[in-house]
Nucleic acid binder design. Sequence first.
DNA 1: CTCAGCAGCGCG
DNA 2: AAAGCGCGCTGCTGAG
Length: 600
Amino acid sequence: MTSAPVQRPAVCVVGTVPGEGVQGRRIGIVDLDREGREFDRIDLAEEALPDHIRDRENGAGGEQKEARPRWVFSDTPKWYPPLLAAGVSIERCHDLRLTHAVIARSELVTAPEALRAAADWDAAPADATAADHAAALFDVDAGRGFIPQVPHDLEAALAEYARQTTAIENASDPGRLRLLLAAESAGGLVAAEMRSAGVPWDEAEHDRILTELLGPRPIRDGKPQKMLAKAEEVRAALDDPRANLDSPNRLLAALRNAGINVASTSKWELRTSEHPAIAPLLEYKKMARLLSANGWHWCDEWVDEGRYRPVYVPGGVVTGRWAASGGGALQIPRQLRPALRADKGWRLVSADVAQLEPRALAAMSGDRAMAAAGFGRDLYSGLVDAGVVSTRHEAKIAVLGAMYGSTTGEAGALVPRLRQNFPAAMHLVDSAAEAGRAGGVVSTWLGRTSPPPGERWQRLQREANRFDATVADEQRARRAAGDQGRFTRNFVVQGTAAEWALAWLADLRLRLAELPEIGAAADGGAGTRPAAASGPVFSRRAHLVFFLHDEVIVHAPAQQADEAAQAIRAAAASAGRLLFGDAPVDFPLDLSIGERALKD
DNA sequence: CTCAGCAGCGCG
DNA sequence: AAAGCGCGCTGCTGAG
């Protein structure tokens, strides 16, 4: 056995190294101390990596738990899924691609030049789907449609890590940036872990819902019977037996022929008509949507052995929100929520934050009046009680209007009342909008910076400033400036809310990992869990299975559900303190424990 | 035939 | 007659 290392690494940089031995690819690992100096370097076969990392995480060789290193990865989706598949999870990482994306653009970074020059780090994430077909893409589509990946070799990782470290150290506020980057990287781990664990999904319940609403599953790709019947109902009401309901153009023509005067076939426009064809048509459209987006075909493709495994893309939205790339994780219709169902002997603990974005705004702007209006209660009702508006509905319209930049209609009429009552909050979003209108950038609370307007935007502004500019030129430019202003106005709020949510997620992840593993007996005995559905990492304790902007779902053994709920609450409180210190803003949760993940 | 762009609607 | 942010996905459409 090896003796305990004299020095404990703060950071371990992982990457591929040249030289393919008989055992396949080799992986290098460089240990850095707290000052970033290299003090050990090893290399090993790729197959040996999971065991090596497990040993280091478990403290083999005398390392204490507190001494777990931060693993530096080129791209978490490239390195972590194989570890999870081997039953290995890690505590902390530094994702070079995610970090690069933030700090190459952050206003907090004072010397971004070296980072920006390293353009090969400015790439799309490795995507499981793309990776599967990477070889084919190379052969067939070389140079076209190929998603560039970041470098995965050790030397490139070391060089980029050094550049990033320097940039962060020299930032105007390194602490804030480090907080953001740690949360961002932790998000990368969570996304991989959630995909590995999967959302427990009751396929029979899903089928039951579809059958109830659409009729039994049709053989082959036909339309289900209730949908066909509904279509006939519409055609009868239109007195047009050949009307095509699936083509917007032809549907519009059919509606016109029936004397229904609408300019488009969208929902809100159809609702204005009283014609007897409208009600069944709206029902038909809803059915068609359910069938195509989350019907049987979707279930076949995305649900396997009782687990729904969407692909998450952390940092996929410019504001810092996550995106999805496959499986539609961000748009599961509420109709289908009952299909989320805990395994036997387990529970789903679901929690969402009430009015996260306005709370983030109150906190970051230090608006004490707004914070007080929401403290310990529904923020919208708080606005009514404070006499700012007269109904909860008005409060919601006004607050959303303030954050989105509404100027007309009901929202436009209500926003000035917020400006009067919450000057600090409104000044923050108004300033952000002004910066955007002028072509500038804005930053979130922790330092994520908005992308500057593009070349098209700059051209429109130039054209409007020429001596021979037409009225149309000026209109286009003004319009584009307004759009950019509303974007930056919303960016600071949505982005800061996303930071709070990431901090919540990161903290929760660590708390859940501290919960004890339940014993084999407590696992429920025979047949309680689909054994193949998730790896050993997630089969014995509460773990995250779903995250959607301001909402988490934890799958927990029944006897651990209360502890999981407590962890969710504690993590929310911790996230608030971490970001906003002692600011008098709270982030109350709606939390429920049950076999299903039903809200309300 | 492929494919980018759009409409429409789901989510926050 | 939909105003006002950020997304993804599906199916239709018109162009090549």
